[in-house]
Design a protein around this nucleic acid. Structure first.
Lengths: 181, 181
DNA sequence: GTCTATATACAGATAGAC
DNA sequence: GTCTATCTGTATATAGAC
């Protein structure tokens, strides 16, 4: 557990990448095996079933999310601004795990939906004492959800371009002006 | 076109219902035929392929969305409040079409994603002249996105309970206080 | 128009050789 | 450990009877 075999991790990386680029439907066992450079039999040696692969991905996602919440508390702009900024994904390990987990949830995987809900609750608890009241907390969470989902479904999927640069800074200032205690 | 055959419409209803309840994966041709009370051969007489069924659903969704935007302009609370309220779905024909279209987009259907993006642009254009500036417009859109996606992926899927009743009214007042010109 | 029967393709998983 | 070969289930779509 403390030092997972390298081959196992690279198979999981391949699965994550395929979920992100092709969605749950494209992330077949055949495709994962090919992307990881092993045969289907070899893949099934490391992960005995598709479900085992999914479970491993969600565990990775939760672990990275816990580390992220701890980091946000140290952000110089404050935890609310940090939350909004991390809702716009870049390409961190957590971003990729969340994207892959979202793709799984989108395909109707209940455990993936539950894991994403747990991540959101983690954020909600961390933000509560840094917002004016429950209404302000919900506003912050919903703006974060909007940013997050537009990214998660994204790659030109659902929406047009999100605010960037100075526009995004202005948005954060506007949210902070009504949400901060 | 102006008076589509009743059987065709009820097949489309069955497809929409299956997308909502079981997702794109569960909405197989077999399942749609059974739900509509026809055989697979009968279904394929009305819609020659799965793609034809998808196209018809997206056309229905766009048509209902255009009607909705026209209605919003007449809402007594104002168009911004109307937009936020309709982002929390109830069970209108548009809500059901949007949910079904979302399920399709979630499964990786590019045309569904494009259609949903067009719907969002429709709302954006309608809201622009009723918000203070571009930053306020983006805030309103993102809160609506947060509400919408939580519903679309919802049914206990991604998040906990959204604000309701008085809590939701308070949220609308908060958004209006910063967004209205 | 609507049906049954079937063709074709591809998914996840197993068995057993190396 | 990793491979090839194969089983089984299920999806879309076609052919042709009624």
């Amino acid at each position: 557990m403390s030092r997972p075999p390298r081959a196992r991790e690279s198979v999981l990386d391949a699965y994550e990448n395929l979920l992100i680029s092709d969605g749950a439907r494209g992330a077949t066992m055949d495709a994962v095996a090919a992307a990881a450079g092993v045969s289907k039999g070899g893949l099934l040696y490391h992960y005995a079933s598709k479900e085992a692969l999914e479970t491993a991905l969600l565990e990775r996602m939760m672990e990275l999310a816990r580390l992220d919440v701890d980091d946000m508390a140290q952000h110089p702009e404050g935890i609310v601004a940090a939350y909004l900024r991390t809702s716009v994904m870049e390409d961190s390990a957590l971003d990729r795990a969340l994207l892959a987990g979202s793709r799984l949830a989108q395909s109707g995987h209940p455990a993936a939906s539950a894991a994403l809900r747990d991540v959101r609750t983690l954020w909600e608890e961390a933000l509560r004492e840094h917002t004016r009241d429950e209404t302000a907390l919900q506003l912050v969470l919903l703006v974060g959800d909007g940013l997050y989902f537009n990214n998660a479904l994204g790659a030109g999927a659902v929406v047009g371009p999100l605010p960037q640069g100075e526009d995004f800074d202005a948005l954060i200032r506007l949210v902070l002006s009504v949400a901060r205690p």
